[in-house]
Design a protein around this nucleic acid. Structure first.
Length: 496
RNA sequence: GGUCCUGUAGCCGAGUGGCUAGGCAAAGCUCUGCAAAAGCUUCUACACCGGUUCGAAUCCGGUCGGGACCUCCA
């Protein structure tokens, strides 16, 4: 089965066909760096990281653009007032770029903790003012924008006479107007839905640039249009972001591209669903934002204790990216244990020596393994169903453990099947799902000490000196190291 | 008010009309000096009411509940 992607624009899954064979251009709306990213933001970037990794795994050469919004995002709900950076900078009495720097570094740090790959290019809005001005000029020239005292507005009503403005989220113009507030008396916009492409700056405004319309700063939506065009062209394959961006931000991006270039920017629009806490969307304004830091330290009322970045990543992988995911202590606990079980089996699998037999001793079991392995790709091709792939993996975990414990003979499955299993697990767990070993047990000194302790314990067990063997085991458990007695008298260990 | 999504066992969550995911928790058994780990087994669910169908968690209609977007937010 070829790769199928659910396209918000068509509201159905369809086969993914890139514009240029073997190449994918992908744009994802990045964070606005005026405060710390919360876990809901992280979910989106983790989802697209996995999509990026999977496209690469399929052999595509992917150019992945994820921007940094460091200007233009307005405070408040109308096209007026400050942008967020200027406001916070003024409150904290620092340069706006100090705010940007602080939270950009924080964002990168969090992305690294979650093991997200960096995008191919991470453009900043402030680095592309010229492009945004150019685009705005062209939209004016094409007749879809107008100036009012140094501010440029996009004319939605004019646009919608020629193109369906609400096409992305299936909204009619009348319905949109219905839900919009009345124009205030002092409002200078012609239409209620009109949005700013360029905003006139007051003299005291901290971030402003010269333009044909005087000093000002860009609107939020134009930056993504300008930067995606610059690095991916007027039309590219994939545009992604959180679902909350579809109705406004992405709708306006489409309108801007159509008004400027007469093309729709992206062929496939992908939207990730929200992370919720007690069923309510996690967001900065709702005040229920969960910071990664709070998760990693466990310092949050909802949590009993700390959870690692990989636990959170695994937790997200167990759900489809288009479903809401509810964040709770219990769910994280279950994920932590599930991940441990999967990872232990993966470590075991890596050490399994493929038997010599090309023919499987147990044809039925062998076929079952091959079926599960084949479904890895099938399920990912079905709109990136990571939850199903994990289920496939867990079906194979008992097989792996049984071979290790001698419950299944090593040659019950063909040598080629074992090798394939090793390759697929590696590819999926590490390369595509981006999970990594957080325990770092390969520290030489600790391993040495553990070998010694295991040796002593083996000796005392042989002598039936259980007082000593239990002492070693219990003391280690107390400091968080678990000893496992395996079949045949071997012992292994792990850190809690 | 409009545009949508959603309601699945104790919890989290996949689910293409028939083959009844998976994880966690719980119980029993096997293994074990004991325990843990591991293996096997059990608990088998689809909000409610109708309809279509040989057959519905899945399709259609209605009712009730939850949520998102339409205003800054991934």
């Amino acid at each position: 089965m070829p790769l199928k992607i659910y396209n918000t624009l068509t509201r159905e899954k369809s086969e993914f066909k890139p514009i240029t064979a073997d190449h994918v251009g992908m744009y994802v709306c990045g964070p606005t760096v005026y405060s710390d990213v919360h876990l809901g933001n992280c979910r989106t970037f983790i989802s697209f990281d996995i999509i990026y990794r999977y496209l690469t795994y399929l052999g595509y050469k992917v150019r992945y653009i994820r921007n940094i919004t460091d200007a233009g995002h307005l405070e408040g709900d109308r096209d007026e007032g400050d942008d967020k950076f200027s406001k916070i900078a003024r409150l904290q009495q620092v340069e706006p770029m100090e705010i940007v720097q602080k939270y950009t570094l924080g964002f990168h740090h969090v992305m690294q903790l979650f093991n997200n790959l960096p995008p191919s290019i991470e453009p900043r809005a402030t680095g592309h003012i010229a492009e945004q001005i150019e685009m705005t000029k062209q939209i004016i020239a094409n007749g879809y924008a107008y100036e009012v005292d140094g501010t440029i507005y996009f004319d939605v009503e004019k646009y919608s006479k020629e193109k369906p403005y609400g096409i992305l989220t299936n909204r009619k113009l009348e319905d949109l107007l219905e839900g919009t507030r009345e124009l205030g008396g002092q409002d200078e916009k012609h239409g209620r839905l009109d949005f700013a492409l360029w905003i006139k700056a007051k003299p005291e405004h901290l971030m402003q640039w010269p333009s044909p319309w005087g000093m000002g700063f860009p609107g939020w939506h134009i930056e993504c249009s300008a930067m995606s065009e610059k690095y991916l062209g007027k039309q590219f394959d994939l545009h992604g972001g959180g679902m909350d961006l579809a109705a406004t931000h992405h709708t306006n991006e489409i309108a801007q591209s159509e008004a400027c270039y007469h093309t729709s920017p992206a062929n496939y629009w992908m939207h990730t669903n929200m992370l919720t806490v007690n069923g309510v969307r996690m967001s900065k304004s709702a005040g229920n934002g969960f910071l990664p830091e709070e998760l990693f330290t466990g310092d949050h009322p909802v949590l009993d204790r700390a959870y690692s970045p990989m636990t959170a990543r695994f937790f997200m992988l167990q759900t489809h990216y288009r479903s809401t995911l509810d964040f709770s202590n219990e769910a994280l606990q279950a994920s932590e244990k599930g991940l441990r079980r999967l990872w232990d089996a993966y470590e075991t699998l890596k050490k399994l020596v493929a038997g010599s037999r090309e023919l499987a001793g147990d044809a039925e079991l062998n076929a079952k393994c091959l079926k599960q392995l084949a479904e890895f790709d099938e399920n990912m091709n079905d709109d990136f169903n990571t939850a199903k792939v994990l289920a496939n993996m867990f079906e194979l975990v008992p097989v792996i453990n049984s071979i290790k414990d001698g419950l299944i003979k090593p040659d019950a499955i063909a040598a080629s099947t074992v090798v394939l299993m090793q390759e697929k697990f590696k590819a999926y767990i590490e390369d595509i799902f981006g999970l990594k070993d957080e325990l770092n047990l390969n520290d030489g000194k600790l391993s040495g000490v553990m070998e010694l302790l295991i040796d002593i314990r083996k000796e005392s067990k042989t002598k039936k000196d259980f007082a000593t063997s239990d002492k070693i085991r219990n003391q280690l458990t107390a400091i968080g190291i678990n000893l496992k007695d395996e079949k045949g008298g071997e012992m292994s260990w792990g850190v809690e």
